[in-house]
Design a protein around this nucleic acid. Structure first.
Length: 493
RNA sequence: GGCGACAUAGCCAAGUGGUAAGGCAGAGGUCUGCAAAACCUCCAUUCCCCGGUUCGAAUCCGGGUGUCGCCUCCA
């Protein structure tokens, strides 16, 4: 059994074999830091996070690099509008990127290189391309000569003749390019713009060269996995390949992974259309479609319920369903924390984030792994997770509502540990402490008092009062359950 | 116009030649003063349409239709 991944380069699934056995180098295109991250970013980085977690669980040592593009027209425009600097804008949105991703339980990458830290490396790369005849200067700009690179178009599946024919609609009069398909490696500085000195005069890097330069600087000429959104296949990744491979003579990445696009109510979500929703708006209840706070884990679950290469449609109904799904899964994940001690289970062995495999081979684990090995089929993997969670949820409910002690405690313990381990691979983790916050404002004694009062009312058949108390408790997240024997149990939601 | 992806129950979704996983929602029942919760049971003779291959197809081939994406900044 081995991991297979869909490689955009070969347009099919292929077994994953790292260059160095046991080690994986992966790079994913990061954000341009001029605004808050949106649902598309969430989908994308959640996906790569799961890939990274899974590779670790599979026993690989993963070196994961994700860049921040901190030189760009959009950042510049924002800085101008705010009367501040590009660096200040970048810094702010980098910070907010981390806030958003950490809420979604996306693990930090190993390195976050920035364009501004790699100007030297970019110069070096452009210099090499120039020396090898792949680049030419024109009016202070430096362009990549696409016609010189025989493999151009291999990733995105387009021929050079197609590209030229498809250049219609673009205003070519203003560019100094020799060929419409050529693209900028270095852009000459315009007045009043930040610029770096270079052998070609002051200016700044073109859009694609940064990634080529940073990959080489941080990971080497050839990496195992390069990921990004499907919208980056062309031109961004095509151009990265052209730059890197022309310079090194080696393949840039063995496996190219691309995630599907996000839509909202069936419509494309994009910055240019202005219909995008930010991650924090969704989580904080500021999404018009679902104006209530959304548990980040439910978002994670929602994203993982679809395959990473397929389109993902955010709808009100889908988010609502994901929240219900998460309730079920959470009940399973917290089972051991809640009942383990009472059942005499050994101290919690739940694995911290990013840990490698905690459980042995079981049918559950085998099915989970088979699903994930098949191009990260998280929907299928989640079926296994839910089967485990459902069983535990059922036992939890029996314990909570009826006090029945499970007969198969040892087996249950194993199921719980397996569930926690597998869910962790998907980044799905529940926090008992956070759960117990529900009903804050009323301590156990106060709740017990109210339950007592309600019991007395019921005994006097004063159901109006009894129901009033029940409603009051429900508001603070406490559920009361009347037992057949007349006893009343309560628990926090 | 060029390139590509996808079409499975109310919704999300798995399935890649052997007779439709899983979740959500829903229905009925048990329990209950009642409601919520809980528990049990049920919930696609059928996989966009039309042909074809096959003993057998959601799964393969051909042709339609529809939706979406990329080709320009975008994860």
């Amino acid at each position: 059994m081995s991991l297979t991944l869909h490689n955009t380069l070969t347009k099919g699934k292929q077994p994953f074999t790292p260059i160095t056995p046991g080690r994986v180098t992966m790079y994913c295109c990061g954000v341009t830091v001029y605004d808050d991250c949106h649902l598309g970013h969430a989908r994308s980085y959640l996906g790569w996070d799961v890939l990274r977690r899974y590779l670790r669980w599979r026993g690989y040592v993963v070196h994961y690099v994700q860049n921040f593009t901190d030189v760009d027209d959009k950042i510049l425009n924002r800085a101008k509008a705010e009367g501040t600097t590009m660096a200040a804008v970048s810094e702010r949105y980098i910070e907010r990127y981390f806030e958003d991703m950490r809420r979604l339980n996306v693990l930090d990458a190993d390195e976050y290189p920035r364009v501004t830290e790699h100007i030297g490396a970019i110069h070096e790369l452009i210099g090499q391309l120039e020396a090898k005849g792949y680049a030419y200067g024109a009016e202070g700009d430096v362009y990549y000569q696409v016609g010189q690179f025989a493999d151009y178009g291999k990733l995105s599946g387009r021929s050079q003749s197609t590209l030229e024919a498809g250049a219609s609609g673009r205003d070519l009069a203003t560019t100094a390019k020799a060929d419409p398909a050529d693209f900028a490696l270095w852009k000459g500085a315009k007045p009043d713009e930040p610029a770096w000195d270079s052998p070609w005069g002051p200016g700044r890097p073109g859009w694609h060269i940064e990634c080529s330069a940073m990959i080489r600087a941080r990971l080497g000429a050839t990496i195992d996995i390069h990921g990004g959104g499907g919208d980056l296949v062309f031109p961004h990744h095509e151009n990265e390949i052209a730059q890197s491979q022309a310079a090194s003579g080696k393949p840039l990445a063995h496996c190219w992974l691309h995630n599907g696009m996000v839509t909202v109510n069936g419509e494309k979500m994009s910055k240019s259309l202005g219909n995008f929703t930010t991650i924090r708006d969704l989580l904080d209840g500021r999404w018009a479609e679902y104006p209530q706070p959304v548990d980040p884990m439910a978002v994670r679950l929602f994203v993982l319920q679809g395959h990473y290469r397929k389109p993902l449609d955010f709808t009100k109904a889908a988010i609502a369903a994901a929240l219900s799904n998460w309730q079920t899964l959470k009940a399973g994940l917290l089972f051991g924390d809640r009942h383990g001690a009472n059942l005499g289970w050994p101290a919690p062995t739940s694995a911290p984030s990013s840990a490698t495999r905690q459980t042995g081979e079981t049918p559950w684990v085998e099915r989970f792994q088979a699903a994930m090995d098949d191009d990260l089929n998280t929907p299928r993997a989640l079926a296994v997770v839910f089967e485990l969670a459902k069983g535990l949820q059922r036992e939890h409910n029996r314990l909570t509502h009826g006090g029945d002690t499970p007969e198969n405690s040892a087996q249950l313990c194993q199921q719980w540990q397996t569930l926690v381990d597998l869910a962790q691979v998907l980044g799905l983790e529940a926090d008992l402490m956070a759960e117990e916050q529900t009903g804050a404002g009323l301590d156990d004694g106060a709740i017990a008092d109210l339950v007592q009062q309600r019991q007395r009312a019921r005994q006097h058949r004063d159901f109006a009062t009894a129901d009033q108390i029940r409603d009051r408790l429900a508001v603070v997240g406490v559920t009361v359950v009347d037992q057949p024997d007349g006893e009343t149990r309560w628990h926090r939601q």
